[in-house]
């Protein structure tokens, strides 16, 4: 039992618990909270894995950004806090079987793969594991991005730029998609068909 193991245990438990919570809770709000816990714990796992940069990104982008966005979506689309959408019993049972099968298959693979790649924590000569320390990964990652630091000499600038542009396009598109449909809002007394037509007109205009 090392400190890393202990911390891993804590974080892994939190992550798995959060994930299970996401899957199990019916309330979207609770799911969101579970997701926050899960993702934060995964960020902790990243810190344990000597990847503070990734962890920080996970926190700031995922937890601080994406999940807030999701909660925002919940707020905008959910009629009430307690409202739940039920699914059928048969579906639940079949889903349970599928989940067990999937978990078994993945677990079996994970154990097999873990055996194949033994990768033990790195200790120094005094037996103190340096896992919990925060190594300087920022500069290596940055240099790797530029294709300067690593041995391979292959940078990630092009993917980075592609992803940047992609992100920009996606965000513009998202903003456009989610913009307020004023005509629909302005005519509440119109019958549903008309409303739908108006909306589809709007879609047609987009096309």
């Amino acid at each position: 039992m090392t400190g890393a193991d202990a911390l891993f245990g804590v974080f892994a438990a939190l992550a798995c618990g959060g994930a299970l919570g996401v899957a199990a809770f019916r309330s979207v709000a609770r799911m969101a909270f579970s997701l926050v816990v899960c993702l934060s714990a995964v960020a902790g796992l990243f810190f344990l894995l000597n990847a503070p940069m990734v962890g920080a990104t996970q926190l700031i982008v995922y937890v601080g950004g994406t999940v807030v966005l999701l909660i925002f979506g919940v707020m905008l689309t959910d009629a009430g806090v307690g409202r739940r959408m039920k699914i059928g019993l048969l579906e639940t049972i079949s889903m349970t079987f599928i989940a067990i099968g999937l978990a078994a298959a993945l677990g079996w693979t994970a154990v097999g793969l873990g055996r194949a790649i033994p990768g033990a924590p790195v200790l120094d000569e005094e037996g103190v594991e340096i896992v919990a320390a925060t190594p300087d990964t920022l500069r290596p990652i940055g240099l790797k991005f530029l294709g300067l630091g690593g041995e391979s000499g292959v940078g990630f600038l092009l993917p980075f730029e592609i992803i940047s542009v992609h992100l920009l396009v996606v965000l513009i598109g998202a903003a456009y998609l989610a913009r307020a449909k004023r005509r629909v809002d302005a005519t509440p007394e119109t019958p549903p068909e008309a409303t739908r037509e108006t909306a589809s007109d709007g879609l047609g205009e987009q096309a």
Binding site: V36, S40, P52, M53, G55, A56, T57, Q58, L59, I60, V63, G64, G65, V67, V68, I71, T134, D136, T137, L138, R139
Partner: peptide, 16 residues
């Protein structure tokens, strides 16, 4: 070495 980034990340949790 990415302390500032981490602090900003951690602070951004507050909103959740």
């Amino acid at each position: 070495d990415c302390g500032l980034f981490l602090i900003l990340a951690v602070l951004s949790l507050e909103v959740v």
